[in-house]
């Protein structure tokens, strides 16, 4: 005979069933552990930071002046380029500075032979990345009156910076 006794026991049984199913689902779906390095979120932040620093260095102080980046590339001043870039990258609002490292090269084209050459601008130091990848950021630099390092004609060169957190 059917009666309506024990309704709450039935609901309890249903609830326990749902919990067991959810548990099984979570256990099965967590066989791979996601770390922050897998999600590329720090890479994205690092790339944006590097692009912003290059854009900032490529902005002249006043209209009509040359930007710091253009001067560094034109004169081949890799030491000041390295110091300026890293001091901007490693600045934090509070606490100790970040631990970013970089290398850079400048790519330019020989107009006569149409050969594209990479020139090592800042050599990498002997640091390793952790689990995060290195990212590459680039910036075009106009050299309207040429450069002693890349040819005397008016040209545009590509500054590429490899940036990593040690």
């Amino acid at each position: 005979m059917v009666n309506d006794a024990g309704q709450l026991y039935t609901m309890e049984g249903v609830a326990a069933g749902i919990i067991m199913l959810l548990t099984a689902y979570i256990v099965v779906s967590t066989t791979s552990v996601y770390t922050t390095g897998d999600t590329h979120i720090p890479d994205m932040q690092l790339e944006q930071l590097g692009s912003d620093v290059l854009a900032m260095m490529d902005t002249p102080d006043t209209n009509g002046m040359k930007s710091a980046l253009e001067i560094f590339v034109n004169t081949g001043n890799s030491t000041d380029f390295n110091n300026t870039f890293l001091s901007c990258c490693n600045a934090t609002t509070s606490g100790k500075p970040d631990n970013l490292h970089m290398s850079a090269n400048v790519t330019y084209r020989d107009a006569n032979t149409n050969v594209i050459t990479e020139h090592l601008f800042v050599a990498p130091d002997n640091t390793w990345t952790g689990r995060e990848s290195a990212v590459r950021v680039t910036r075009w630099v106009q050299l309207p009156s040429g450069s002693p390092n890349y040819g005397s004609r008016a040209q545009v060169v590509l500054v590429e910076v490899l940036l990593w957190r040690a």
Binding site: A55, T107, Y108, R109, A111, N114, I116, T138, R139, W140, Q142, P144, R153, A154, Q155, V156, V157, L158, E160
Partner: peptide, 30 residues
């Protein structure tokens, strides 16, 4: 960055070879 490089190129009165620089280096390195 490409847009600003092209606008700089226009600002500097279209010097010879700069357009070819941008096109060739974009393909090679970017």
């Amino acid at each position: 960055d490409l847009r600003s490089a092209i606008f700089d190129y226009v600002d500097t009165e279209l010097p010879d070879g700069v357009k070819e620089d941008i096109i060739a280096i974009s393909l090679e390195r970017k």
